[in-house]
Design a protein around this nucleic acid. Structure first.
Lengths: 214, 214
DNA sequence: GTAGATAATGACACTGAGTCTCGTTTGAGC
DNA sequence: GCTCAAACGAGACTCAGTGTCATTATCTAC
C-alpha cells in the first residue's frame, strides 16, 4: 500500500524523520478513512494511531482533507515542476499533455494503489471532493502564471486559462474512468486514456445537436 | 445595495418572511464581511445583527461561506434553469453561451453592485475562493447531467465536460476583468466581454510557442 | 372566527477542526 | 560534549456546524 520508507541516506536525519512521520500519517489516514469513513474518523484518533501530537499533524498538513489526497497532490506537484523546467516549443496544449504524461510516468510504483484508494475515498466524502476542487484550481493558477511568464502573455489571457483547465479536465475524466475499471491495464492504460481525452478536445467545440432531442 | 424586498403578495406569508430573513442575512453579511473581513466576523455577530438565531441561519444557508456569495449563485441558478427548459439545436457551445447570457440579462437590476462586492470579498478570503470553486464544480456537474440527458450521451463523455467547463472558465475570466474595471459599462460590457471570451476559445487550442521564449 | 395540524424558530448543549502559546526534546554544527 | 535552532508535545482556546426540544407563528378546514 505504501511507498518504501525514505531510506535516502543523503538526506539529513531530521528531514528523514519528518518524511517518515508524513508517510505514516498518510498511510494510516488512507486506511482508517477507508475503514471508518472520512467524517467518522477524528483527527485525534488518527494522531493517536500514529503516536504524534495534533500539533505535529498540522505542521505536516494544512488540513484534515490534505492528508487523504497525497496521491493526488503528487501528480500535480510533479506536473508543475516539469512545466517549470521545460523549454516550450510548438503547440502549447501538446506541451501540457506531455508534462502531465511525464509526471505520471515518473511516479512511485506504489502510487497506483494509493491513487485508487484516494479516489474511492473522495467519492464518499463531499468535504474531500470540495478540497480537491479548490486544490486543482490552485494548480491551474500556478500553471497559468508559469505559462504567462514563459510565453510573455498577460496572466488574464483567456487562452492559457482554457489550456490549463483543459488539462485538469482531461485528467479528471480519464482518471475517473481508470479508477472505475479498477486501474486495469496499469499506468499504461491510464496514459492511453489521457491521450485519447486530449485527442477528443477539438470535437467538443463542434458538438452539435442533430435532430430534435427526442 | 439590496434588491427590493419580496413584496410579491402572491407568495404565502410564511414564504415571504423566509425570503426576507434570507435577504437580510445576505445584505448584512456582505456589509459586515466587507467592513471587518470574512474571517474576523463571526456567525454569532452576524445573526445578532439581523436578530435571528444561529439555527435560522443554517436553515437558510448551508455554510458561512454561502451567505457571502449569493450574487454568484443567482447567476448559476438562472443558468441551469434556462438550460433545463431550453430546446437545444445547433452548436452546443453556442447554446451554453446563450443560456449564460440570458441568465445574466434577467438578473435583478441591483445584482451588479452586489456581485462586485462579492467578488472583491472573495479576493480577500481563501475560504470563500475554495467555496466558490467547489460550487462551480457542482454547477458544471449539473450542466453535464442535463446535457447528457438532452443529447442522449453518456455522462462520462469528455466533450460535454469540456463544454461545461469552458462555460465557467469564460465567465470566470470575463467577470474578473469586469469587476477589476469597477463594472464599467454595466451589464452590457459584461456580456460583451463574455462574448469575446467565447470567440477566443478556438485560438486557445492553436496557441503556439514561436521562437525561443527569450 | 376558532381549532388543530404543521412548519419555522430560539435556546442550548455538544462535537471536532484548526490556532496559539510555551516548555521540552532532539538533531546539527563546532 | 556544548550550543543553537528546529521540531515536538501538551493543553487551552475559538468558532463553525449539528442535534434536540420546547415554543411560537402560519396555514387550512370548518
Amino acid at each position: 500500500m505504501t511507498a518504501s520508507p525514505p531510506d535516502d541516506r543523503s538526506l539529513p536525519l531530521r528531514e528523514r524523520k519528518r518524511l517518515r512521520t508524513r508517510r505514516a500519517l498518510a498511510d494510516a489516514a488512507l486506511r482508517m478513512f477507508g475503514e471508518k469513513g472520512f467524517d467518522a474518523t477524528t483527527l485525534d484518533e488518527l494522531v493517536q494511531e500514529v503516536e504524534v501530537s495534533k500539533s505535529t499533524f498540522f505542521r505536516a498538513f494544512p488540513a484534515k482533507e490534505a492528508v487523504a489526497i497525497e496521491a493526488e497532490t503528487e501528480v500535480w506537484t510533479a506536473y508543475l515542476a516539469l512545466l517549470g523546467e521545460r523549454e516550450l516549443s510548438g503547440l502549447v496544449i501538446t506541451q501540457l499533455r506531455d508534462c502531465l504524461a511525464d509526471a505520471v510516468t515518473r511516479l512511485d510504483p506504489a502510487w497506483d494503489d494509493r491513487y485508487v484508494a484516494t479516489r474511492r475515498l473522495i467519492l464518499t466524502a463531499p468535504a474531500l471532493l470540495a478540497y480537491v476542487d479548490s486544490y486543482r484550481t490552485g494548480v491551474e493558477d500556478e500553471a497559468v502564471s508559469c505559462l504567462a511568464g514563459k510565453l510573455g502573455l498577460d496572466a488574464d489571457d483567456l487562452r492559457i486559462h482554457v489550456l490549463a483547465q483543459l488539462t485538469t479536465t482531461c485528467w479528471s475524466v480519464s482518471a475517473r474512468a481508470w479508477v472505475r475499471g479498477d486501474a486495469a491495464g496499469g499506468r499504461a492504460a491510464l496514459l492511453a486514456r489521457l491521450d485519447q481525452a486530449y485527442r477528443s478536445i477539438p470535437a467538443s467545440l463542434e458538438l452539435t445537436v442533430k435532430g430534435p432531442p427526442r
